[in-house]
Structures are given as C-alpha cells and as structure tokens.
Design a protein around this nucleic acid. Structure first.
Length: 907
DNA sequence: ACTGCCGACTCAGAAATCTACTG
DNA sequence: GCAGTAGATTTCTGAGTCGGCAG
C-alpha cells in the first residue's frame, strides 16, 4: 500500500511542480555523489553505528512541524484515469505460424487503499485487472537469444515471431474515486519535485545510442549458453563450483593505477578514430543501418556493447515482434498527438518529490518521526518430540525452537547439504549443552515436528475466508503504526519495519555459513535513528530498551541492528521504495546513466586505445572496462573466505575465461547470488590478445586481473566522468537498450501488441543483465499438460477430417471416439471447426514455446532497478498505452517521480 | 600512499501470498 | 459455481557496490 506515493502535489499552475525542464538544461549535478562527498568531509563528525560505542549524535535535527496527516492518495484517484484502465481487450488473431505468448504484466490496480490504510484494516482487496497478453517472440531461451538472431532460433525450430493473443479484463472503474479525491485534497504537504529533467531532454538519441544500433556490424554474437535445456543454470545448491573460481583469495599487486585521462566534456573525442560511430557528442548517431563495416574496424564495434549487438541482430532480422499485419482490433487508432497533453495533465500517478533538504546535499532530512520496529512474537512451544535413535527426547523451549527451524526445512535442498547440517549442528549443540543425550544430528529424527508443522499448515489453509480475513485485520491493526514514518512533515511508508525473526541462515550458492542459527533480535540489539524533537519510540517489549537512539540526519535509515550471522554487518530499516527520498536517489541514478550516455564515446575511445598499452595495469583497466561496458558485468569486489565464492569483473579467475581462436572469449563463472554466467562472445582482437597475456603463466584459480581491483577501476572511471562507477554501465546499458528497442520496434497496433513489444525489450534487458529465476517446480508438468492437450486436439482434427470427407459425400459422421453420436454438420461448418482447432493448436504450441523460453528469465529485476522509468512512461504516452499495463501498483508508487515526464523523453 | 575495514545503500532471487483463470 | 492451479505481486532477507576513514 504505497498509496501515498501517488500523491500529486497541488500546484497553482496545474502542474505538479515537477517540471523538469529546467533541470535538464542545466549541467548535470550528481547530487548523490556530491552528497557523499560532502558527507565525507563532514563525516568525521558523524556518529557511526558501532557496536560498542553509544555515540549519541544529533546532527542537524530541527524542529519538527506537526506531521502532515497522511498525504495519501490513490494512484487512480482521478476519474479521468479510468480511461486508461478500460483498455479493451483485443484479440489479435492467432494466425502467425511462429508465435509465442508472453503474458503482459499485470495491470496495476488503481484502487485507493486509503481507507484501508487509514483505519488499519484492509477490507477491500483491490480489484485487479489482468491481462494476458500473449507475447511475441521473445521467447527464446536466454541462450538462444543471445546467440543472435531470430532466424537462427526459428530455424532451429523455435518460434520466432509471435503474435499476441491477448485477453484483458476490464478493470472496474471509478471505485474509490471519491476517497482518492478526498485524500488528494486533504494532502497538506506538497512535495517538491524531484525531478524533472525529463522533458527537456527529449532528444533524438539515436546518436547517443551505442549499442543497439551497431549490433550487426561486427557480427559479434554474444550468447549465453545454455538455455532452457542448456540455459545458464543456477548453481544448484548441491553442486560445487563448476567454474574455476578459486576460493583462495590472493592479494593483488598494488601498483597504483595510472588511469588514462580523458578530458571531460571534450568534444574532440568525436574525431578520435576510435570513437567513430559511438561518439555521442557527434551528432551522427550510429544507427544500425548506418552500420559501418565492422570487421576491420578495430574499435568500431567496440563501441557497441555486445549485448546490444546481439540484440540488434535479432531486431534487425526479425521484422518486429508485432506483426504489422496482425489483427489490429480497432481499438487504438487514436492519434498519438493528442495524448501527451492529457497525460501531462492527468498523470495521476505523479507525485512531486522533495528536493534534497536545503539543497546542501548532506542532510537527508530535517525532521523524522516513526514508531520504531515491530518484533516477531515470542516462540510458542508445541511440545512435539523429536526422536533420537528412535526414542522421544525432551527438549527445552529454546532447544525445541531451533529443532523446529531445522525440521521444517526438510523439503528444501539445504536439508541434506553437509555444510548446512554441520553448521546447524554446531549451533544447536551449543544450545543442547554438553551433556545432552543427543550426540549427533544423523541419529535425530525430526519427522514428528515436520508432521506437526504440515498439519498446522493444513489447518491454516482450511480456515474459512472469514477467519482468514479477521486474522489479517488483526495483524494489520497491530502493525499499522509501524508502517509509517513522517519525514519532513510528509508521511511515508516504511520499507521493512518488521525485525527479522530467528531462523537458520540460508545463504545462496555454496555459502560457508549456511545453516547457522540466526538468533532472535531483541530491542537491546537495535539502534534507532529519529529526529531530535520526535518522541523516541516506545520499546514494544516490556522491560527492555533500545540499544541506542541517535539523531543523525545525514543517513536515511530509521533503525539498524547487527547481522547475527556476520556481526560486522548491519541490517537497516529504511523507508519504502515509494518514498520521496528513495525516488530522488533513483532519479539521480538514472541521470548519472544518462550522463554516461553523453560520454560513452570518449570512454570507449579511451579504453580502446589502451587495449595494447604497455603498462599492464592500464591494459587491465582498459579490458575490464570494456567487459563491463560490453557485457554489463558487475564490478566484482573482493570477497572474504566466509562468503560464497562468486566473482565479478575484477575478480574473474583465469579459469573463468576461455580463449577460443581466433577471437572469441567464453565466460563461465558464478556471479551475484551464485547465478551462473555463461557467455561466448567475439571480442576485439586486441582484447583477445590482452586476455591471453593476462592468463599467461597463471593457474586457473589466479586472478585474471591481478593488477586491478574495484577501487582502482572506479578511481579510473571517475577521471573519465565525475561520479562514474562500474555499476553505472549496467544502468546505462539497460536503459539505452530499452529506449532503443521501444523506439525501433513499436508499430501501430493495438495496446496488447505494444505491450508485447515492451515485454520483448524488457526481456532483452534481462538477458543482458543475466537476470535469472529458477524453473518452477511445476514447469515440467505444465509443459506436459500442454503437450497432451495439443495431442488431443490433433486427434480431434483427424476425426473432423473424416467427418468432413463424409459430409461432402452426404454421409453422417461416424460415432466419436467417446462413443457418442456427433451432430450432423455441414462441410462448411466442419471446415471452420478444423480451422479453429488448428488455430488453437498453434496458440498452444506458442504458449509452450514461450513458457520454455522464459522459464529462466526474470523480467522484474531490470524493470525495478535498471530501466529508467521515464522511458517507459514517455513511451506509454506516445503510444497510448495505459501505464498500468506496464507498471503494477508498487512500481507506479516507486516511479511516481517519473510520471510527469515529457512524452518525447528519450533516455 | 596504500590497504583493509566500516558503513550505507542498491540490487537480487526465493518464498509467501494473493488473484484470477480454467475446467 | 467451485476447486484447483498458474501466474502475478509482495515480502523477505541475502548479496552486491562503493565511498570514506584509520592505521
């Protein structure tokens, strides 16, 4: 319920006050980084949370004005917004041979939850309108997609072009409009606009788009290998590291990096040979069709991120995911021209966001009030006994609690992992005590507890809807006060106000600490951060008190505690993503990425030049930057031995990269969250050569970039562009890819078709970022089910063919396979039926293919974190697509700051 | 000047929960 | 109309990035 996020400030001129133009025209200032800088300078004063110190520091807290009472507004508060919600479902014909379906993202429900939030009771579940848009072709497996063009895919039997078959339900309109309006009107506080750069930057970016456009030129075809069948599989828990990542962390040489300097803002680079085509400053955009000869051009391609290149491949070769001919059910023939105005005025989702307080870039707030955190209920003993060597054992509540944590994990992969069991046993043994009858874990039988747990689950499941509702309401009533904070007078949602309950640590991949006991967090573990003038939250557990109360307005956290698994680390309580504070930060992130877009030509020219630099460090920096740019790799910080052995660019091991002559590199490593990255790409010959040099004389477990670490790399990047760091390339690549694909692939058509285009672009980005998900348990069964149905339909067609034959001869149909008599149909009717059944089969085959292809791709992560929402919003405005078709309720709240973007905005 | 650590924040997939569709 | 289920959304919390400070 982030409804408050939708609040749109009332501004005299009728706009949100979120007008961006000015900002855009001004030199970009990276507030965040400057904040940091400033902060750093003052940070010596800043009390840091630390386990022993009870520094009380009050920084800059000022008097709090009375909190403006819940500035809540529903996203859909305006009736006018209903228009977009009332999309007519359109059903594109399912004619195309190669189609696959992709579900359109659920439409955000626009109903106001205000009342609910106000009284703490969630009585009205929001109606959700859903649309199943079948999607188009994106459905190739990650690997296949990476491999390149659609043709390949289709030739290999995969559906290549798909037509959407969509279903969308009409969303109830006008519900709660009154309350929305009311809330809106009641809103006291107007947040100032965060941002606004959008409109003025409506530029033709083609020129600035590096990647995408060049894709085909060099024939660089990155592919992620593996796919549905061979897709980059997540590392199974059981499996050891398949790649050559070494767990041995070896110290790197610390030769000072000598970064190549590039004049910032210099436009000369445009003339650099290397930068051709990619030089963004030059007003000659590198477009796909402009494609210069890539092959011989040592740097020409370089400027094109591999990912985009491959993307381009596919986009060039496939006409469009949406077939122009596809049935356009006359729904959307509105002129685009009209839209913008309406959007701008109506943008019901926009809320103005605050600027940084006092603009000093340091203080994050002036006043802050909240109610602290809520703790999980104390452990409730169940009394079920485990068996040790077949005999029931008495356990104390504390022992039983931990035993239960273990017992309920029986069906997880962790349960049988040695590391997990060993760590668990170590911690549990301490609780059991030295002389306990239980001497080892393997002789313990936790089945009784597991069965009890399953029973409880079943009981819960069997509760009546009414009982469930009451429970839910009770919970809400209990939590309501913790859900909100008031920051500078504005009521904002708190992100994670619930303290993590005790449990067993579930690290990802081969985490050395998996199975360890995460102890219960108590008030005395928690440090509260709150405005100086605000009342200190009452400790919810009688007789206990907070560890410390601070008043530090240079940070955004409301509370933190030390992570019980890794006491050096902290768990923070922050505001929710829908808050203005987070929105501002988000916007700055994208603005930085846009700035990179302007500089990318220079940067590429610079690193290209250094591919063969005699200085090894420079060469490594150049190659690493290239990889980060082209493959959207993460920076790759050093990790401790007590963490899973994963890598990023700077920590790649020699064994993670195979050189395949003449100039291909095969990457195979475990990245963040132990997600496998497998990708074979063609690279510039100098890069290929350099990688070979970096590998020479090393073992597979040695660092590939032994002269490099993230701080050196980032220090170098900062010389190329202020505040530039490795991660900005990921944001940049994701956003530029989305922008480019949307602009290239969108055709006239109905909304569902356009949504499919969006899904495809989203998918491309997800592939570039290697965002994966595990295949659902029921996937196999679902596919089988579909296959079975297809088979049945084929049988039906056979029967229909026979009937048709007989009907033409004036005979009655044979008895059906089910033994029943069939109706006597005319040949025409039978032909029609056959056609319909065939269409049904085609659709199901596409569905199956899509399901298979998408089974490992996670679209959400890029949408939430990498793709500038203004691209999406502007595209929706230009193409008359209701934003709710793309962003769900949460995203609408999170991206409220982007809603007023100019329709012509380009990344 | 360098390095390692601390601190604060973003990003990530899995699990839990909710919702709507299908048979 | 209902139950089962698929898929969407939300919650949870682990895993990264990166700046800055201290030794």
């Amino acid at each position: 319920m982030a409804t408050e996020a939708f609040v749109k400030p009332v501004v005299p001129n009728g706009h949100d006050g979120y007008d961006d133009d000015d900002e855009d025209e001004m030199p970009l200032v990276f507030k965040r980084s400057s904040n940091n800088n400033n902060t750093s300078s003052s940070s010596s004063n800043r009390p840091r949370p630390n386990s022993n110190g009870q520094k009380s520091s009050s920084i800059g807290s000022t008097k709090s004005p009375p909190p403006s009472r819940s500035p809540l507004t529903s996203p859909n508060r305006s009736a006018s917004s209903g228009r977009s919600s009332l999309m007519k479902p359109s059903l594109p014909s399912s004619s195309s041979v190669q189609r696959s379906t992709v579900k359109s993202p659920p439409v955000g429900d626009g109903r106001s939850l205000v009342a609910k939030e106000r009284n703490g009771l969630g009585k009205t579940p929001p109606p959700v309108s859903k649309s199943d848009d079948e999607d188009s072709e994106d459905d190739k497996p990650l690997s296949a997609r990476l491999k390149g063009d659609t043709k390949q895919a289709s030739s290999s039997g995969r559906g290549s072009s798909q037509q959407p078959v969509q279903r969308s339900n009409v969303r109830p309109q006008g519900v709660n409009d009154y309350s929305r309006k009311k809330d809106y009107d009641e809103r006291v506080q107007t947040k100032t606009n965060v941002g606004a750069s959008s409109s003025s930057k409506a530029v033709n970016n083609d020129q600035k788009r590096p990647l995408v456009n060049n894709i085909n030129r060099n024939g660089l075809k990155p592919k992620i290998e593996g796919n549905s069948s061979q897709a980059p599989a997540k590392r199974p828990l059981e499996k050891g590291n398949s790649s050559n990542q070494s767990s041995v962390k070896r110290p790197k040489l610390s030769e000072p990096a000598r970064p190549v300097k590039i004049e910032q803002g210099s436009r000369n680079a445009a003339t650099t040979p290397d930068s051709k085509g990619s030089n963004l400053e030059a007003s000659k955009p590198l477009r796909a069709n402009q494609a210069t000869d890539k092959e011989d051009n040592s740097d020409g391609d370089d400027h094109v991120p591999i990912a985009s290149r491959m993307r381009q491949d596919s986009s060039n070769k496939k006409p469009s995911s949406v077939k122009p001919n596809a049935s356009m059910i006359a729904s959307s023939s509105r002129t685009i021209a009209k839209k913008p105005n309406k959007w701008v005025k109506d943008s019901k989702y926009s809320k103005s966001t605050r600027s940084l307080p006092s603009g000093d870039g340091q203080k994050k707030w002036k006043t802050l009030e909240h109610n602290g955190v809520i703790f999980p209920p104390p452990y409730k003993r169940h009394g079920v006994k485990i068996l040790y060597q077949g005999k029931p054992v008495d356990l104390t509540p504390e022992q039983e609690e931990v035993a239960t944590m273990f017992a309920v994990m029986r069906e997880t992969e962790y349960y049988n992992k040695k590391m997990f069991r060993d760590n668990f046993w170590n911690d549990w043994r301490k609780i059991l005590g030295k002389n306990h009858v239980i001497k080892n874990l393997d002789d313990c039988d936790f089945s009784p507890i597991y069965e009890w747990y399953m029973q409880e689950k079943e009981i819960k499941k069997q509760m009546s809807a009414e009982e469930k509702r009451i429970l839910k309401e009770e919970k809400l009533a209990q939590e309501e006060k913790y859900m909100w904070a008031v920051l500078d007078g504005v009521r904002e949602k708190v992100g994670n106000f619930r303290v993590e309950p005790p449990g067993l640590f579930r690290g990802r991949g081969e985490h050395p600490k998996m199975g360890k006991l995460k102890k219960r967090i108590r008030p005395c573990d928690i440090t509260i951060n709150i405005g100086k003038e605000a009342p200190v939250p009452e400790c919810p557990i009688p007789g206990e008190r907070w560890k410390e109360v601070k008043h530090d307005n240079t940070v955004t956290w409301l509370a933190f505690w030390n992570d019980p698994i890794n006491p050096k680390e902290f768990k923070y309580v922050f505001l929710a993503a829908s808050s203005a504070l987070k929105g501002l930060s988000d916007k700055e992130k994208y603005e930085k990425a846009r700035k990179l877009k302007d500089r990318i030509g220079h940067i590429r020219a610079a690193y290209t030049k250094d591919f063969s630099n005699k200085d090894v460090t420079k060469r490594q920096i150049a190659v690493a930057t290239y990889l980060i740019d082209k493959l959207a790799l993460r920076a790759g910080n050093e990790k401790d031995d007590d963490e899973a052995d994963t890598v990023g660019c700077c920590t790649l091991k020699v064994g993670n990269v195979d050189c395949i002559p003449p100039n291909k590199l095969k990457f195979d490593f475990l990245g963040k969250d132990s997600i496998q990255y497998v990708n074979t790409v063609e690279v510039e010959p100098p890069v290929y050569k350099a990688i070979g040099q970096f590998q020479a004389g090393k073992s597979k477990t040695d660092d590939l970039f032994d002269e490099l670490d993230t701080s050196k790399l980032n220090a170098h990047l900062k010389e190329l562009m202020p505040a530039l760091t490795a991660k900005v390339f990921r944001t940049y690549n994701a956003s530029i890819t989305l922008d480019d694909m949307l602009s290239k692939e969108t055709r006239d058509g109905d909304v569902p078709e356009k949504v499919v285009v969006y899904q495809q672009a989203n998918k491309e980005v997800a592939i570039i970022c290697n965002h994966q998900r595990t295949v659902s348990k029921s996937h196999g069964a679902q596919v089988e089910k579909l296959a079975l149905k297809i088979e049945e339909l084929r049988e039906q067609i056979k029967e229909l063919d026979i009937d048709l034959d007989r009907a033409k001869k004036g005979r009655t149909p044979l008895v059906g396979s089910d033994g029943k008599r069939k109706r006597n149909l005319t040949p025409e009717a039978l032909e029609k039926k056959i056609m319909q059944t065939n269409a049904k089969i085609e659709k199901m085959e596409r569905d199956m293919q899509t399901k298979e292809d998408m089974k490992t791709v996670a679209l959400g992560t890029s949408k939430i974190n990498y793709m500038d929402p203004r691209i999406t919003v502007a595209w929706c405005k230009r193409h008359d697509v209701p934003i709710e078709k793309i962003f769900n309720k949460s995203l609408l709240a999170k991206f409220a700051w982007a809603m007023d973007v100019d329709p012509e905005f380009r990344f």
